[in-house]
Design a protein around this nucleic acid. Sequence first.
DNA 1: TACAAAATTCTCAGATATTGATAATTATGT
DNA 2: ACATAATTATCAATATCTGAGAATTTTGTA
Lengths: 226, 226
Amino acid sequence: MAVSTSSAYRDVQDLCRAGFLNPVTGAGYILGPAFIEYDRLTRQGDPLIQAAAEPMRQLLARTTQKATAILCRRYRDTVMCVHQEQGRSPHPITAYERGIAMPLFIGASSKVVLANMEARALKRIYLDNEDEIRRSTRAATWKAFNEELRAIRRAGHAMTIGEVAAGRIGIAAPVFAAKQVVAGVSLVLSADDVPDGKIEDFAHAVRDAAEEVSEYVLHSDMFISR
Amino acid sequence: MAVSTSSAYRDVQDLCRAGFLNPVTGAGYILGPAFIEYDRLTRQGDPLIQAAAEPMRQLLARTTQKATAILCRRYRDTVMCVHQEQGRSPHPITAYERGIAMPLFIGASSKVVLANMEARALKRIYLDNEDEIRRSTRAATWKAFNEELRAIRRAGHAMTIGEVAAGRIGIAAPVFAAKQVVAGVSLVLSADDVPDGKIEDFAHAVRDAAEEVSEYVLHSDMFISR
DNA sequence: TACAAAATTCTCAGATATTGATAATTATGT
DNA sequence: ACATAATTATCAATATCTGAGAATTTTGTA
Protein backbone atom coordinates (compact mmCIF):
# COMPACT_ATOMS: atom_id res chain seq x y z
CA MET A 1 0.00 0.00 0.00
CA ALA A 2 3.06 2.22 -0.32
CA VAL A 3 3.23 3.36 3.29
CA SER A 4 6.20 3.33 5.63
CA THR A 5 6.75 0.73 8.31
CA SER A 6 5.87 3.33 10.93
CA SER A 7 2.56 4.15 9.34
CA ALA A 8 1.71 0.50 8.79
CA TYR A 9 2.17 -0.35 12.46
CA ARG A 10 0.37 2.78 13.54
CA ASP A 11 -2.60 2.34 11.21
CA VAL A 12 -3.13 -1.31 12.07
CA GLN A 13 -2.93 -0.42 15.74
CA ASP A 14 -5.53 2.32 15.29
CA LEU A 15 -7.85 0.02 13.36
CA CYS A 16 -7.59 -2.57 16.13
CA ARG A 17 -8.35 0.00 18.79
CA ALA A 18 -11.39 1.17 16.85
CA GLY A 19 -12.62 -2.41 16.45
CA PHE A 20 -12.26 -2.65 12.68
CA LEU A 21 -9.46 -5.21 12.88
CA ASN A 22 -8.98 -8.08 15.29
CA PRO A 23 -5.57 -9.66 15.86
CA VAL A 24 -5.57 -13.45 15.90
CA THR A 25 -2.45 -15.39 16.78
CA GLY A 26 -1.25 -17.44 13.88
CA ALA A 27 -3.75 -15.92 11.50
CA GLY A 28 -2.56 -12.32 11.46
CA TYR A 29 -5.69 -10.20 11.54
CA ILE A 30 -9.35 -10.71 10.83
CA LEU A 31 -12.01 -8.03 10.46
CA GLY A 32 -13.06 -6.71 13.83
CA PRO A 33 -16.21 -6.70 15.93
CA ALA A 34 -17.19 -3.20 14.83
CA PHE A 35 -18.51 -4.62 11.57
CA ILE A 36 -20.69 -7.12 13.40
CA GLU A 37 -22.03 -4.34 15.56
CA TYR A 38 -22.66 -1.88 12.75
CA ASP A 39 -24.16 -4.63 10.65
CA ARG A 40 -26.80 -5.14 13.28
CA LEU A 41 -27.54 -1.42 13.31
CA THR A 42 -27.82 -1.55 9.52
CA ARG A 43 -30.34 -4.38 9.64
CA GLN A 44 -32.25 -2.55 12.34
CA GLY A 45 -32.21 0.82 10.64
CA ASP A 46 -32.98 -0.12 7.05
CA PRO A 47 -36.71 0.43 6.47
CA LEU A 48 -36.59 -1.70 3.32
CA ILE A 49 -35.32 -4.75 5.21
CA GLN A 50 -37.93 -4.17 7.90
CA ALA A 51 -40.69 -4.00 5.31
CA ALA A 52 -39.50 -7.10 3.46
CA ALA A 53 -38.73 -9.58 6.24
CA GLU A 54 -42.28 -10.72 6.93
CA PRO A 55 -43.43 -10.93 3.27
CA MET A 56 -40.29 -12.98 2.57
CA ARG A 57 -41.12 -15.45 5.34
CA GLN A 58 -44.65 -15.72 3.97
CA LEU A 59 -43.26 -16.31 0.51
CA LEU A 60 -41.44 -19.38 1.80
CA ALA A 61 -44.56 -20.53 3.67
CA ARG A 62 -46.64 -20.24 0.49
CA THR A 63 -44.17 -21.97 -1.80
CA THR A 64 -41.58 -24.26 -0.23
CA GLN A 65 -39.41 -24.29 2.85
CA LYS A 66 -36.69 -25.95 0.79
CA ALA A 67 -35.60 -22.56 -0.52
CA THR A 68 -34.06 -19.24 0.46
CA ALA A 69 -35.72 -15.87 -0.03
CA ILE A 70 -33.35 -13.00 -0.69
CA LEU A 71 -33.78 -9.24 -0.88
CA CYS A 72 -31.40 -7.52 -3.26
CA ARG A 73 -30.93 -3.80 -3.33
CA ARG A 74 -29.61 -1.71 -6.15
CA TYR A 75 -26.32 -0.20 -5.19
CA ARG A 76 -24.38 1.82 -7.76
CA ASP A 77 -23.55 -0.55 -10.59
CA THR A 78 -24.30 -3.70 -8.62
CA VAL A 79 -27.22 -5.41 -6.96
CA MET A 80 -26.40 -6.43 -3.43
CA CYS A 81 -28.12 -9.04 -1.32
CA VAL A 82 -29.07 -7.21 1.88
CA HIS A 83 -31.34 -9.70 3.58
CA GLN A 84 -32.15 -13.37 3.44
CA GLU A 85 -34.67 -15.70 4.99
CA GLN A 86 -33.87 -19.39 5.09
CA GLY A 87 -36.60 -21.96 4.57
CA ARG A 88 -37.03 -24.37 7.46
CA SER A 89 -36.31 -27.57 5.56
CA PRO A 90 -32.69 -28.44 4.86
CA HIS A 91 -31.54 -27.24 1.46
CA PRO A 92 -28.27 -26.21 -0.19
CA ILE A 93 -27.04 -22.83 0.96
CA THR A 94 -27.21 -20.01 -1.52
CA ALA A 95 -24.03 -18.64 -3.06
CA TYR A 96 -25.85 -15.34 -3.49
CA GLU A 97 -25.96 -14.69 0.24
CA ARG A 98 -26.27 -11.55 2.31
CA GLY A 99 -23.38 -9.21 1.60
CA ILE A 100 -22.66 -10.42 -1.93
CA ALA A 101 -22.81 -7.84 -4.70
CA MET A 102 -23.71 -9.06 -8.17
CA PRO A 103 -23.06 -7.30 -11.47
CA LEU A 104 -26.21 -5.73 -12.91
CA PHE A 105 -26.38 -8.34 -15.66
CA ILE A 106 -26.22 -11.65 -13.79
CA GLY A 107 -28.96 -13.34 -11.81
CA ALA A 108 -32.70 -12.97 -11.65
CA SER A 109 -32.55 -10.14 -9.10
CA SER A 110 -30.28 -8.04 -11.25
CA LYS A 111 -32.35 -8.62 -14.36
CA VAL A 112 -35.62 -7.72 -12.73
CA VAL A 113 -34.11 -4.52 -11.37
CA LEU A 114 -32.64 -3.61 -14.74
CA ALA A 115 -35.87 -4.46 -16.55
CA ASN A 116 -37.80 -1.99 -14.43
CA MET A 117 -35.44 0.94 -14.64
CA GLU A 118 -36.53 3.90 -16.69
CA ALA A 119 -35.70 3.67 -20.38
CA ARG A 120 -33.13 6.44 -20.49
CA ALA A 121 -31.14 5.11 -17.55
CA LEU A 122 -31.21 1.65 -19.09
CA LYS A 123 -29.86 2.84 -22.42
CA ARG A 124 -27.04 4.64 -20.65
CA ILE A 125 -26.16 1.50 -18.71
CA TYR A 126 -26.18 -0.54 -21.91
CA LEU A 127 -23.87 1.85 -23.69
CA ASP A 128 -21.51 2.07 -20.73
CA ASN A 129 -21.26 -1.71 -20.39
CA GLU A 130 -21.66 -3.01 -23.92
CA ASP A 131 -18.56 -5.19 -23.73
CA GLU A 132 -19.42 -6.76 -20.40
CA ILE A 133 -23.00 -7.41 -21.52
CA ARG A 134 -21.78 -9.21 -24.65
CA ARG A 135 -19.45 -11.30 -22.51
CA SER A 136 -21.80 -12.25 -19.70
CA THR A 137 -25.22 -12.45 -21.36
CA ARG A 138 -26.63 -13.82 -24.57
CA ALA A 139 -27.74 -10.37 -25.72
CA ALA A 140 -25.50 -9.27 -28.59
CA THR A 141 -27.24 -6.00 -29.45
CA TRP A 142 -29.19 -3.25 -27.75
CA LYS A 143 -32.29 -4.59 -29.42
CA ALA A 144 -31.84 -8.11 -28.08
CA PHE A 145 -30.93 -6.78 -24.63
CA ASN A 146 -33.94 -4.49 -24.53
CA GLU A 147 -36.28 -7.20 -25.84
CA GLU A 148 -35.20 -9.60 -23.09
CA LEU A 149 -35.73 -7.01 -20.41
CA ARG A 150 -39.05 -5.88 -21.84
CA ALA A 151 -40.28 -9.48 -21.64
CA ILE A 152 -39.24 -9.57 -17.98
CA ARG A 153 -41.00 -6.29 -17.29
CA ARG A 154 -44.18 -7.58 -18.95
CA ALA A 155 -44.08 -10.86 -17.05
CA GLY A 156 -43.54 -9.06 -13.76
CA HIS A 157 -40.74 -11.41 -12.79
CA ALA A 158 -37.39 -12.73 -13.99
CA MET A 159 -36.31 -16.33 -13.87
CA THR A 160 -32.81 -17.66 -14.31
CA ILE A 161 -31.66 -21.27 -14.30
CA GLY A 162 -28.10 -22.11 -13.37
CA GLU A 163 -26.91 -18.57 -13.98
CA VAL A 164 -25.51 -17.80 -10.54
CA ALA A 165 -24.92 -21.40 -9.43
CA ALA A 166 -25.29 -24.69 -11.23
CA GLY A 167 -28.65 -26.42 -10.85
CA ARG A 168 -30.22 -23.51 -9.00
CA ILE A 169 -33.22 -21.50 -10.03
CA GLY A 170 -33.82 -17.86 -9.14
CA ILE A 171 -37.17 -16.14 -9.48
CA ALA A 172 -37.22 -12.40 -8.81
CA ALA A 173 -39.83 -9.64 -8.76
CA PRO A 174 -39.32 -5.88 -8.43
CA VAL A 175 -39.90 -3.64 -5.41
CA PHE A 176 -40.86 -0.06 -6.18
CA ALA A 177 -40.63 3.15 -4.19
CA ALA A 178 -42.05 6.33 -5.68
CA LYS A 179 -42.38 4.56 -9.04
CA GLN A 180 -38.68 3.75 -9.09
CA VAL A 181 -37.36 0.23 -8.77
CA VAL A 182 -35.22 0.02 -5.64
CA ALA A 183 -34.85 -3.68 -4.98
CA GLY A 184 -35.80 -7.22 -5.93
CA VAL A 185 -37.31 -10.05 -3.92
CA SER A 186 -36.16 -13.50 -5.06
CA LEU A 187 -36.81 -17.11 -4.34
CA VAL A 188 -33.75 -19.31 -4.78
CA LEU A 189 -34.03 -23.09 -4.90
CA SER A 190 -32.75 -26.24 -6.55
CA ALA A 191 -34.30 -27.25 -9.84
CA ASP A 192 -35.08 -30.62 -8.19
CA ASP A 193 -37.14 -28.98 -5.48
CA VAL A 194 -39.76 -27.49 -7.81
CA PRO A 195 -42.77 -29.84 -8.00
CA ASP A 196 -44.04 -30.42 -11.55
CA GLY A 197 -46.13 -27.59 -12.88
CA LYS A 198 -45.59 -25.48 -9.77
CA ILE A 199 -43.08 -23.08 -11.21
CA GLU A 200 -45.70 -20.58 -12.37
CA ASP A 201 -47.36 -20.67 -8.95
CA PHE A 202 -44.00 -19.96 -7.38
CA ALA A 203 -43.39 -17.03 -9.73
CA HIS A 204 -46.80 -15.68 -8.86
CA ALA A 205 -46.03 -15.92 -5.15
CA VAL A 206 -42.77 -14.03 -5.68
CA ARG A 207 -44.64 -11.26 -7.54
CA ASP A 208 -47.17 -11.06 -4.72
CA ALA A 209 -44.44 -10.84 -2.09
CA ALA A 210 -42.65 -8.05 -3.96
CA GLU A 211 -45.90 -6.16 -4.43
CA GLU A 212 -46.61 -6.47 -0.76
CA VAL A 213 -43.25 -4.92 0.05
CA SER A 214 -43.84 -2.11 -2.47
CA GLU A 215 -47.24 -1.48 -0.93
CA TYR A 216 -45.70 -1.24 2.52
CA VAL A 217 -43.01 1.06 1.21
CA LEU A 218 -45.59 3.27 -0.49
CA HIS A 219 -47.37 3.98 2.76
CA SER A 220 -44.30 4.82 4.74
CA ASP A 221 -42.83 7.28 2.18
CA MET A 222 -39.24 7.02 3.25
CA PHE A 223 -37.51 4.47 1.15
CA ILE A 224 -35.88 5.70 -1.97
CA SER A 225 -32.17 5.24 -1.86
CA ARG A 226 -30.91 8.38 -3.55
CA MET B 1 -20.33 17.04 16.85
CA ALA B 2 -18.86 20.50 16.87
CA VAL B 3 -17.92 20.71 13.20
CA SER B 4 -18.66 23.44 10.70
CA THR B 5 -21.40 23.24 8.09
CA SER B 6 -18.76 22.77 5.43
CA SER B 7 -17.19 19.81 7.16
CA ALA B 8 -20.55 18.26 7.94
CA TYR B 9 -21.59 18.27 4.29
CA ARG B 10 -18.17 17.11 3.17
CA ASP B 11 -17.88 14.29 5.67
CA VAL B 12 -21.37 12.94 5.03
CA GLN B 13 -20.66 13.08 1.32
CA ASP B 14 -17.41 11.16 1.78
CA LEU B 15 -19.09 8.54 3.95
CA CYS B 16 -21.77 8.06 1.32
CA ARG B 17 -19.22 7.69 -1.43
CA ALA B 18 -17.34 5.10 0.61
CA GLY B 19 -20.55 3.18 1.25
CA PHE B 20 -20.70 3.73 5.01
CA LEU B 21 -23.82 5.89 4.83
CA ASN B 22 -26.82 5.57 2.55
CA PRO B 23 -29.13 8.51 1.89
CA VAL B 24 -32.83 7.69 2.03
CA THR B 25 -35.46 10.25 1.10
CA GLY B 26 -37.61 11.14 4.04
CA ALA B 27 -35.43 9.23 6.46
CA GLY B 28 -32.18 11.16 6.23
CA TYR B 29 -29.47 8.56 6.22
CA ILE B 30 -29.11 4.93 7.16
CA LEU B 31 -25.91 2.94 7.51
CA GLY B 32 -24.54 2.00 4.13
CA PRO B 33 -23.93 -1.20 2.20
CA ALA B 34 -20.25 -1.33 3.15
CA PHE B 35 -21.20 -2.71 6.55
CA ILE B 36 -23.25 -5.50 5.00
CA GLU B 37 -20.35 -6.35 2.73
CA TYR B 38 -17.68 -6.24 5.43
CA ASP B 39 -19.93 -8.17 7.76
CA ARG B 40 -19.99 -11.02 5.30
CA LEU B 41 -16.21 -10.93 5.07
CA THR B 42 -16.09 -10.98 8.86
CA ARG B 43 -18.29 -14.07 9.03
CA GLN B 44 -16.23 -15.69 6.32
CA GLY B 45 -12.86 -14.83 7.79
CA ASP B 46 -13.43 -15.56 11.46
CA PRO B 47 -12.06 -19.04 12.20
CA LEU B 48 -14.01 -19.20 15.45
CA ILE B 49 -17.34 -18.73 13.71
CA GLN B 50 -16.35 -21.30 11.11
CA ALA B 51 -15.45 -23.81 13.80
CA ALA B 52 -18.62 -23.21 15.79
CA ALA B 53 -21.36 -23.14 13.14
CA GLU B 54 -21.74 -26.89 12.68
CA PRO B 55 -21.50 -27.85 16.39
CA MET B 56 -24.15 -25.19 17.07
CA ARG B 57 -26.52 -26.69 14.52
CA GLN B 58 -25.94 -30.10 16.06
CA LEU B 59 -26.64 -28.68 19.49
CA LEU B 60 -30.09 -27.64 18.30
CA ALA B 61 -30.63 -31.03 16.67
CA ARG B 62 -29.74 -32.82 19.91
CA THR B 63 -31.85 -30.64 22.20
CA THR B 64 -34.72 -28.71 20.66
CA GLN B 65 -35.37 -26.77 17.48
CA LYS B 66 -37.47 -24.36 19.54
CA ALA B 67 -34.34 -22.49 20.56
CA THR B 68 -31.50 -20.33 19.30
CA ALA B 69 -27.84 -21.20 19.64
CA ILE B 70 -25.52 -18.24 20.02
CA LEU B 71 -21.75 -17.84 20.00
CA CYS B 72 -20.45 -14.99 22.13
CA ARG B 73 -16.93 -13.74 21.96
CA ARG B 74 -15.04 -11.83 24.57
CA TYR B 75 -14.35 -8.36 23.35
CA ARG B 76 -12.69 -5.87 25.72
CA ASP B 77 -15.04 -5.43 28.65
CA THR B 78 -18.03 -6.94 26.93
CA VAL B 79 -19.13 -10.26 25.51
CA MET B 80 -20.50 -9.89 22.01
CA CYS B 81 -22.78 -12.25 20.16
CA VAL B 82 -20.94 -12.95 16.88
CA HIS B 83 -22.96 -15.81 15.46
CA GLN B 84 -26.35 -17.37 15.87
CA GLU B 85 -28.13 -20.43 14.58
CA GLN B 86 -31.92 -20.44 14.69
CA GLY B 87 -33.80 -23.63 15.47
CA ARG B 88 -36.20 -24.72 12.76
CA SER B 89 -39.38 -24.59 14.83
CA PRO B 90 -41.00 -21.23 15.42
CA HIS B 91 -39.87 -19.66 18.69
CA PRO B 92 -39.53 -16.16 20.12
CA ILE B 93 -36.58 -14.27 18.69
CA THR B 94 -33.67 -13.70 21.00
CA ALA B 95 -32.93 -10.23 22.32
CA TYR B 96 -29.30 -11.26 22.60
CA GLU B 97 -28.82 -11.45 18.84
CA ARG B 98 -25.80 -11.21 16.61
CA GLY B 99 -24.11 -7.84 17.03
CA ILE B 100 -25.27 -7.19 20.58
CA ALA B 101 -22.59 -6.61 23.19
CA MET B 102 -23.40 -7.55 26.79
CA PRO B 103 -21.67 -6.35 29.94
CA LEU B 104 -19.36 -9.00 31.42
CA PHE B 105 -21.72 -9.56 34.33
CA ILE B 106 -25.07 -10.23 32.67
CA GLY B 107 -26.23 -13.37 30.93
CA ALA B 108 -25.07 -16.97 30.91
CA SER B 109 -22.47 -16.37 28.19
CA SER B 110 -20.82 -13.57 30.09
CA LYS B 111 -20.77 -15.53 33.31
CA VAL B 112 -19.26 -18.61 31.79
CA VAL B 113 -16.54 -16.53 30.16
CA LEU B 114 -15.80 -14.71 33.42
CA ALA B 115 -15.82 -17.93 35.40
CA ASN B 116 -13.11 -19.42 33.21
CA MET B 117 -10.77 -16.47 33.15
CA GLU B 118 -7.54 -16.78 35.04
CA ALA B 119 -7.74 -15.82 38.70
CA ARG B 120 -5.58 -12.71 38.52
CA ALA B 121 -7.48 -11.21 35.58
CA LEU B 122 -10.74 -11.94 37.34
CA LYS B 123 -9.72 -10.17 40.53
CA ARG B 124 -8.67 -7.15 38.52
CA ILE B 125 -12.02 -7.08 36.76
CA TYR B 126 -13.84 -7.34 40.07
CA LEU B 127 -11.91 -4.48 41.60
CA ASP B 128 -12.36 -2.29 38.52
CA ASN B 129 -16.12 -2.89 38.43
CA GLU B 130 -17.12 -3.36 42.04
CA ASP B 131 -19.93 -0.80 41.86
CA GLU B 132 -21.44 -2.17 38.68
CA ILE B 133 -21.24 -5.73 39.97
CA ARG B 134 -23.10 -4.75 43.14
CA ARG B 135 -25.76 -3.06 41.06
CA SER B 136 -26.32 -5.71 38.42
CA THR B 137 -25.69 -8.99 40.25
CA ARG B 138 -26.52 -10.47 43.59
CA ALA B 139 -22.87 -10.73 44.57
CA ALA B 140 -22.14 -8.16 47.27
CA THR B 141 -18.55 -9.11 48.00
CA TRP B 142 -15.52 -10.53 46.23
CA LYS B 143 -16.08 -13.74 48.10
CA ALA B 144 -19.67 -14.12 46.95
CA PHE B 145 -18.73 -13.16 43.40
CA ASN B 146 -15.86 -15.61 43.29
CA GLU B 147 -17.93 -18.39 44.85
CA GLU B 148 -20.63 -18.02 42.25
CA LEU B 149 -18.14 -18.12 39.42
CA ARG B 150 -16.25 -21.03 40.90
CA ALA B 151 -19.49 -23.01 40.99
CA ILE B 152 -20.00 -22.24 37.31
CA ARG B 153 -16.44 -23.28 36.49
CA ARG B 154 -16.92 -26.56 38.38
CA ALA B 155 -20.24 -27.28 36.67
CA GLY B 156 -18.76 -26.56 33.27
CA HIS B 157 -21.73 -24.40 32.33
CA ALA B 158 -23.67 -21.33 33.44
CA MET B 159 -27.42 -21.07 33.50
CA THR B 160 -29.48 -17.90 33.86
CA ILE B 161 -33.23 -17.58 34.03
CA GLY B 162 -34.88 -14.33 33.01
CA GLU B 163 -31.66 -12.38 33.33
CA VAL B 164 -31.40 -11.04 29.79
CA ALA B 165 -35.10 -11.31 28.87
CA ALA B 166 -38.12 -12.30 30.92
CA GLY B 167 -39.10 -15.95 30.79
CA ARG B 168 -36.03 -16.97 28.84
CA ILE B 169 -33.35 -19.40 29.87
CA GLY B 170 -29.73 -19.25 28.76
CA ILE B 171 -27.30 -22.13 29.15
CA ALA B 172 -23.67 -21.41 28.26
CA ALA B 173 -20.41 -23.36 28.15
CA PRO B 174 -16.86 -22.07 27.56
CA VAL B 175 -14.72 -22.33 24.43
CA PHE B 176 -10.97 -22.44 25.01
CA ALA B 177 -8.02 -21.67 22.80
CA ALA B 178 -4.53 -22.27 24.16
CA LYS B 179 -6.02 -22.77 27.63
CA GLN B 180 -7.58 -19.33 27.55
CA VAL B 181 -11.32 -18.80 27.41
CA VAL B 182 -12.16 -16.95 24.20
CA ALA B 183 -15.89 -17.43 23.77
CA GLY B 184 -19.07 -19.07 24.99
CA VAL B 185 -21.61 -21.26 23.23
CA SER B 186 -25.15 -20.81 24.52
CA LEU B 187 -28.58 -22.27 24.07
CA VAL B 188 -31.38 -19.74 24.51
CA LEU B 189 -34.98 -20.83 24.89
CA SER B 190 -38.24 -20.16 26.68
CA ALA B 191 -38.71 -21.70 30.10
CA ASP B 192 -41.91 -23.27 28.71
CA ASP B 193 -40.01 -25.11 25.99
CA VAL B 194 -37.88 -27.19 28.34
CA PRO B 195 -39.49 -30.62 28.83
CA ASP B 196 -39.61 -31.76 32.47
CA GLY B 197 -36.32 -33.11 33.71
CA LYS B 198 -34.53 -32.32 30.45
CA ILE B 199 -32.68 -29.26 31.60
CA GLU B 200 -29.62 -31.23 32.71
CA ASP B 201 -29.50 -33.06 29.40
CA PHE B 202 -29.64 -29.73 27.62
CA ALA B 203 -26.79 -28.37 29.75
CA HIS B 204 -24.76 -31.45 28.95
CA ALA B 205 -25.37 -30.97 25.23
CA VAL B 206 -24.21 -27.36 25.49
CA ARG B 207 -21.01 -28.47 27.25
CA ASP B 208 -20.42 -31.06 24.54
CA ALA B 209 -20.92 -28.51 21.79
CA ALA B 210 -18.50 -26.05 23.39
CA GLU B 211 -15.92 -28.79 23.88
CA GLU B 212 -16.25 -29.77 20.27
CA VAL B 213 -15.53 -26.20 19.22
CA SER B 214 -12.52 -26.03 21.57
CA GLU B 215 -11.25 -29.30 20.15
CA TYR B 216 -11.53 -27.96 16.63
CA VAL B 217 -9.80 -24.74 17.65
CA LEU B 218 -7.00 -26.69 19.31
CA HIS B 219 -6.12 -28.50 16.12
CA SER B 220 -6.06 -25.43 13.93
CA ASP B 221 -3.78 -23.35 16.22
CA MET B 222 -4.87 -19.96 14.98
CA PHE B 223 -7.64 -18.71 17.15
CA ILE B 224 -6.64 -16.69 20.13
CA SER B 225 -7.89 -13.15 19.93
CA ARG B 226 -5.01 -11.18 21.32
C1' DT C 1 -43.22 30.30 -14.28
C1' DA C 2 -40.92 33.54 -11.11
C1' DC C 3 -39.13 34.58 -7.03
C1' DA C 4 -37.12 34.36 -2.35
C1' DA C 5 -35.24 31.48 0.95
C1' DA C 6 -32.96 27.48 2.14
C1' DA C 7 -29.82 23.92 1.11
C1' DT C 8 -25.68 22.46 -0.83
C1' DT C 9 -21.23 22.75 -3.13
C1' DC C 10 -16.92 25.23 -4.19
C1' DT C 11 -12.64 27.77 -3.05
C1' DC C 12 -8.57 28.79 -0.59
C1' DA C 13 -5.57 30.38 3.15
C1' DG C 14 -4.60 28.98 7.71
C1' DA C 15 -4.69 25.45 11.32
C1' DT C 16 -3.89 20.68 12.23
C1' DA C 17 -2.90 16.05 11.94
C1' DT C 18 -0.16 12.64 9.44
C1' DT C 19 4.04 10.91 7.77
C1' DG C 20 8.46 8.52 7.88
C1' DA C 21 13.47 8.39 9.30
C1' DT C 22 15.68 7.29 13.23
C1' DA C 23 16.33 5.83 17.94
C1' DA C 24 14.73 3.14 21.76
C1' DT C 25 12.49 -0.74 23.43
C1' DT C 26 10.57 -5.29 23.50
C1' DA C 27 9.87 -10.03 21.77
C1' DT C 28 11.68 -14.30 19.57
C1' DG C 29 14.51 -18.14 18.32
C1' DT C 30 18.60 -20.76 18.96
C1' DA D 1 22.42 -15.47 26.95
C1' DC D 2 22.79 -13.70 22.86
C1' DA D 3 21.79 -11.96 18.18
C1' DT D 4 18.18 -10.75 15.42
C1' DA D 5 13.71 -9.42 14.31
C1' DA D 6 9.61 -7.05 15.60
C1' DT D 7 7.46 -3.27 17.53
C1' DT D 8 6.89 1.27 19.66
C1' DA D 9 8.24 6.17 20.56
C1' DT D 10 9.96 10.77 18.98
C1' DC D 11 9.80 14.79 16.24
C1' DA D 12 10.49 17.95 12.29
C1' DA D 13 8.76 18.26 7.54
C1' DT D 14 4.78 17.98 4.98
C1' DA D 15 0.46 16.87 3.23
C1' DT D 16 -4.31 17.01 4.65
C1' DC D 17 -8.24 18.87 6.80
C1' DT D 18 -10.90 22.82 8.32
C1' DG D 19 -14.18 26.57 8.08
C1' DA D 20 -15.64 31.28 6.38
C1' DG D 21 -17.59 33.10 2.72
C1' DA D 22 -18.88 33.16 -2.25
C1' DA D 23 -21.25 30.66 -5.85
C1' DT D 24 -24.55 27.52 -7.18
C1' DT D 25 -28.50 24.55 -6.94
C1' DT D 26 -32.83 23.06 -4.94
C1' DT D 27 -37.21 23.87 -2.77
C1' DG D 28 -41.48 25.99 -1.56
C1' DT D 29 -44.89 29.30 -2.64
C1' DA D 30 -47.55 32.44 -5.17
